[in-house]
Design a protein around this nucleic acid. Sequence first.
DNA 1: CCGATAGTGAAAACCGTTTTCATGCTTTCC
DNA 2: GGAAAGCATGAAAACGGTTTTCACTATCGG
Lengths: 151, 151
Amino acid sequence: MTAWRGGRCYGAGVSASQPVRGTRVRGTRQAEALASALECLAGFRSAQDIHAELRRRGERIGLTTVYRHLMVLSEDGAVDTIRDEDGETLYRRCETSEHHHHVTCRSCGRSVEVEGRAVELWADRVAAEAGFVDVDHTVEIFGLCPACAAK
Amino acid sequence: MTAWRGGRCYGAGVSASQPVRGTRVRGTRQAEALASALECLAGFRSAQDIHAELRRRGERIGLTTVYRHLMVLSEDGAVDTIRDEDGETLYRRCETSEHHHHVTCRSCGRSVEVEGRAVELWADRVAAEAGFVDVDHTVEIFGLCPACAAK
DNA sequence: CCGATAGTGAAAACCGTTTTCATGCTTTCC
DNA sequence: GGAAAGCATGAAAACGGTTTTCACTATCGG
């Protein structure tokens, strides 16, 4: 469970949010609802948070379905995923399809995408120096956003 | 469960490995055994791997105790921890007490410590630009080590 | 020795996630 | 329009790593 759960973001409708990128996520009421929730939620949220939010909105949708859709969406690159400090997976609608990293608020979940050409290069370089191949990296930055820091 | 479990590293003894840094981990047979196992195991291992290894060596030690000691050791900075792609926590005896990162083999767990002045600076900079404070970061690189890549 | 104190570990609880499987909803074809 | 086929759904159960519980044991100072 994340710390910042609970929230507003009602008045959902935001007009029939159309399918997120050409994925198979479409058609069903549940997929629509999930897409709309992702549209509306600003930061990284756990699957359970998102499910709770949907239920709060009155949607009839099962936790299983939320997990299933998030999995597909993330495989398709339509949502980003990160792991919080407890190992829980957090999801967020992806803004750009390019490789990038995040500065995420550990209190409210709000996050900013940052370009990381520099880290990419660094990671590739040090891995190559160590003789490693097929290299992959995870880079996440957590902190307190200006709003939360103000408290 | 990690992929590279099971291994040699018997003939353990390595002479009574002395207590790792001035922690409260000492005295008991189990703590000694764990310290010695960590000394001997090269790469990052899951708590369960380490426990299995100890049992294989004939040590009488419970999984709970392994977890407990690893927790303390990691709080004291005597072991490093990272999360693998499945969210499982992996442990390794720490080589330097300075902040550093790893290039870890996703097949055998072997890892190389790398200096990351560049990333530190980058992380601090982008976080500051976004107005975040109390910043923390995780940077892990996974790949195939030369030996595993050769197969 | 002895008693206080800290450590141990089997079993149960936890908790996020995945699987199962019976049921529903769509789509397709006639 | 309707029946069959196929995919989506979700409650409940399984899963797997980790933590908690609690009765028991080892250790250490005196």
